[in-house]
Design a binder for these strands. Structure first.
Length: 827
RNA sequence: GCCCGGGUGGCGGAACUGGUAGACGCAAGAGACUUAAAAUCUCUCGAAGUUGAUCUUCGUGUCGGUUCGACUCCGACCCCGGGCACCA
């Protein structure tokens, strides 16, 4: 007999063999099949930065297990992969190494595609797409034009973060401590024109739709809800004294309107100019605004910046009681939210309170806690909770809720106010002054204005991509690009030179995957109708708002454009935790990066996959541990040995339960218990770590039994046990299992194998251990028949020697029996 | 400040619906095999006390509560991680 030796399974040869087969035979290619239930598994596609990192390994391992598991269950599984290929790093690489962004990107894609293949991931590579490909972005341009027709696209002037040395607009997240992330120059605000998507038109739907996302983590739903930030209140006009104008404010607390003691308007408020011009306050206010605008940049960093303000000299009138209210310019008021002007109620708002204290403005209490009366006219802090109204004219005595409604109604009746809903969500600014992105397909004509590029002229191709050393200057510096003629009047005109935010590409790629090669439409209705929505989406929680919100917006837009028939793109969302090492996120600067290539070369893809699934449940952070990888590798070698040393059993037919001897019955039972545990762990919450533990236990049991009871153990039981081990492990370690599956005489690949069925009868224990407690403390354990009735169990417990010792002759006051679990005797 | 997560052995993590805390793995220690090592196998492995296999007490961030029984439920607090941050 062959003794245990130090042979390890030859992962290099095995993985190469199966990967080649998957490449040649493409078993994961799928087409719609109305007779089969579909399942769409999707992992967030990567940015082709050069090479994959451990976060990808984890993400794609999880997705692959789900894809393979669902296939084994008979679903028609679509599992695509592609590249989020536009973006700034490509341009940086171009600057740094003199490589064209296109070349850099496609080289990276080629390399990373091989890395993904080397992981043995079961993608339908026929559906691969790269967003920088004109065949992709031409459809994005078409969608843009259709959105334009629908009035969902507009252009406006706005303030952006501008880096003067890089000559580009920076996204908010690219501004670090007020400076450019790349060159460290201070970022300056700059006003310029930009294109916007009207996501706010869908604000209500995006918010209400969150209710239907029962398969999403609550955390993500909450983040989106807060981000959209719907609040209901009153928009109210305050007539300005000695002016022909009104100051409109928005408040969510109309019930406090009798407590208004001043007004605060944003420094950018358009009315200020009229209020101050020609008055003695003019210079002071101007000076204040100038300083405040500069401060604003820096202040963004402070946790709670101090509030500043200045009196404009103007007054407005409270329409409810006719009081004169002084108007202040204040640096804490946001122009971009509400109306840019707020009524200040220092008694009931913390910010107004701070401001009033600082500038010694009156504080008037108009809401009192329901349970106590206060006559305090100088409270120590703002009372912000709802309560009962006082000193509020006809509304005094009402509770806050009733007062809100009554006050809004009153304002509407008298025509100086209206119920209004506002959102924190702003329209999505998609303009980027960069080269490596989708060109926005419009033309500016002196005579005709903004003219959309006619559909027949799409795509508007990014210049310079067809030659390796083509130009990659920003489009506004490429005259060959922007010089054109107007499609309407034929006169000389200028192309738009902004490109789209790269989040636009990732907002609809999951839909394009369903018909990635269509040359007639961005999304084939029929294919999308079959495959969508994505049943399981998997990715990092860092996209909780931006990408996931944009995708939900786009899905609705595409629905309204007639391409899709769904409201929500992702039925279930799994947000995986980060991969960390030594307690910190892997990063070059910390020097704690683990390169997947090294791991795969040393241990093989299966081991790396297994460890990344075993070390932690997917939603939690995963602490990388080199020794843990050894453990995973050890386990696979153990399975390999177990199967190779029991090859002879694979000729045997399975046994009937009643012909099994005791060790065989035990193994048979454990086999079915394991099927149940693994299925439940995957089904319930994708806890592969516990699923793997369960298989390890079965393997340990089989190893012990084959060693100890070698002669008695019946091959007709061992065989299905070992086959089950392979079937349960296949989604996680596919090359390894395929190899052993073939070795053990199966002529069809595991891609055709079904997930093992669970037989409750086979899993049933005849005996179990029942705990006996005395006063809640475990004092003894009884081994009893599984079907023992409670009365008998109780008697046995009372008769137990150890139990009697602890009862010390006392009478039981109460005996609790939990069926098949425990007996607790209270004395 | 507000909103989410999370705190369990030396480490990663288990524990069904309130019912044996620490599955599985890693590390560590001891032993077997070996000329030796590697590999493999076996045993030990929360703390303290006691002890001849044993047993007792304590133990899931802290304090309190509910319960026959609490990692699990309730209340207050501490710490760590993440998100938001003057949104009127």
């Amino acid at each position: 007999m062959k003794m245990h030796n130090n042979d390890k399974y030859d992962f290099k040869a095995i993985e190469a063999k199966w990967q080649k087969r998957w490449l040649d035979e493409q078993p994961y290619r799928v087409t719609p099949d109305p007779d089969r239930e579909k399942y769409y598994v999707l992992e967030m596609f990567p940015y082709p930065s050069g090479r994959i990192h451990m976060g990808h390994v984890r993400n794609y391992s999880i997705g692959d297990v789900i894809a393979r598991y669902k296939r084994m269950q008979g679903f028609n599984v679509i599992h695509p992969m592609g590249w989020d290929a536009f973006g700034l790093p490509a341009e940086n690489a171009a600057l740094k190494h003199g490589i064209h962004p296109a070349r850099w990107t496609y080289d990276n894609i080629a390399y990373m595609r091989e890395q993904l293949r080397a992981m043995g991931l079961s993608y339908d590579w026929d559906r691969e797409l790269a967003t920088c490909d004109p065949d992709y972005y031409r459809w994005e341009q078409l969608i843009f034009l259709k959105m334009m027709e629908k009035g969902l696209v507009y252009r406006k002037e706005t303030t952006v973060n501008w880096c003067d040395s890089c000559q580009t607009v920076l996204a908010r997240e690219q501004v670090i401590d007020g400076c450019c992330w790349r060159c460290d120059q201070q970022v300056v605000p700059r006003t310029m024109h930009g294109w916007f998507f009207k996501i706010t038109a869908y604000a209500d739907e995006l918010l209400d739709g969150l209710e239907t996302l029962t398969g999403w983590p609550e955390k993500v739903v909450t983040m989106q809800r807060n981000w959209i930030g719907r609040s209901q209140g009153l928009a109210c006009d305050f007539r300005i004294e000695n002016h022909d104008q009104v100051l409109t404010i928005f408040t969510t607390r109309p019930d406090t309107i009798f407590g208004v003691t001043f007004m605060s308007v944003a420094v950018e408020h358009p009315l200020i100019e009229q209020l101050i011009s020609g008055t003695e306050h003019e210079d002071r206010v101007r000076d204040f605004i100038r300083k405040a605008l500069v401060e604003k940049q820096r202040q963004a960093l402070d946790a709670e910046p101090e509030k500043h303000g200045v009196f404009t000299g103007a007054y407005c009138l409270n329409p409810f009681n006719g009081e004169r209210i002084p108007i202040f310019v204040a640096d804490f008021v946001l122009m971009e939210y509400g109306t840019g002007a707020v009524m200040a109620v220092p008694a009931h708002d913390r910010r107004d309170f701070d401001f009033a204290r600082k500038y010694d403005l009156p504080i008037r209490v108009v809401v009192q806690p329901a349970d106590r009366e206060t006559t305090d006219t100088a409270p120590a802090e703002a009372y912000v909770e709802p309560g009962l109204l006082v000193d509020s004219g006809p509304f005094s005595g009402m509770d806050s809720q009733a007062a809100k409604e009554a006050i809004i109604a009153h304002a509407e009746q008298h025509g100086f106010g209206k119920a209004r809903t506002t959102y924190r969500l702003r329209d999505w600014g998609i303009s980027r002054q960069r080269y490596w992105g989708t060109p926005i397909p419009v033309i500016h004509c002196q005579r005709c204005g903004i003219v959309p590029v006619p559909e027949k002229d799409l795509p508007v191709v990014l210049p310079g991509t067809d030659t390796p050393d083509g130009s990659h200057a920003p489009l506004h510096r490429q005259e060959e690009f922007y010089a054109t003629t107007c499609p309407e009047c034929g006169e000389a005109a200028r192309r738009e030179t902004d490109t789209m935010d790269t989040f636009v590409e990732s907002s609809w790629y999951f839909a394009r995957y369903t018909s990635p090669r269509s040359t007639t439409t961005p999304i084939d209705r029929e294919a999308a109708g079959y495959w969508l929505p994505v049943d399981q989406y998997i990715g990092g929680v860092e996209h909780a708002i931006l990408h996931l919100l944009y995708s939900r917006f786009f899905t609705r837009v595409l629905r309204d454009l007639g391409y899709l028939a769904i409201d929500e793109p992702f039925a279930n969302l799994l947000t995986q935790g980060m991969v960390i090492k030594d307690g910190a996120k892997m990063s070059k600067s910390k020097g704690n990066v683990v390169d997947p290539n090294d791991l795969i070369n040393t241990y093989g893809a299966d081991t790396v996959r297994l460890f990344s699934l075993f070390a932690a449940p997917p939603e939690r952070d995963l602490e990388w541990n080199a020794q843990g990888v050894d453990g995973a590798s050890r386990f696979l070698n153990k399975v390999n040995r177990l199967i190779r040393s029991n090859l002879d059993c694979f000729g045997s037919a399975p046994l009937d339960a009643d012909t099994m001897n005791p060790p065989s019955r035990l193994l048979h039972r454990r086999t079915h218990q394991t099927i149940k545990r693994v299925s439940d762990n995957i089904e319930k919450n994708f806890h592969f770590n516990t699923a793997i533990s369960a298989v390890m236990e079965l393997v340990n049991q089989a190893t012990t039994l084959t060693a100890e009871s070698r002669k008695e153990l019946q091959p007709g039981v061992l065989r299905p046990c070992l086959e089950t081990v392979l079937l349960l492990l296949f989604p996680m370690v596919p090359h390894f299992c395929e190899e052993l599956w073939e070795l053990t005489g199966h002529d069809q690949s595991m891609d055709h194998a079904a997930w093992p069925g669970f037989d409750p009868e086979a899993a049933r224990e005849d005996e179990l251990t029942v705990v006996v407690q005395v006063n809640g403390k475990v004092r003894s354990r009884l081994t009893v028949a599984a079907d023992i009735d409670n009365e008998l169990l109780r008697q046995q417990a009372l008769a137990d020697e150890r139990v009697r010792h602890f009862m010390a002759g006392k009478q039981a006051k109460k005996i609790i029996v939990v069926q098949g679990k425990l007996v607790n005797i209270v004395i």
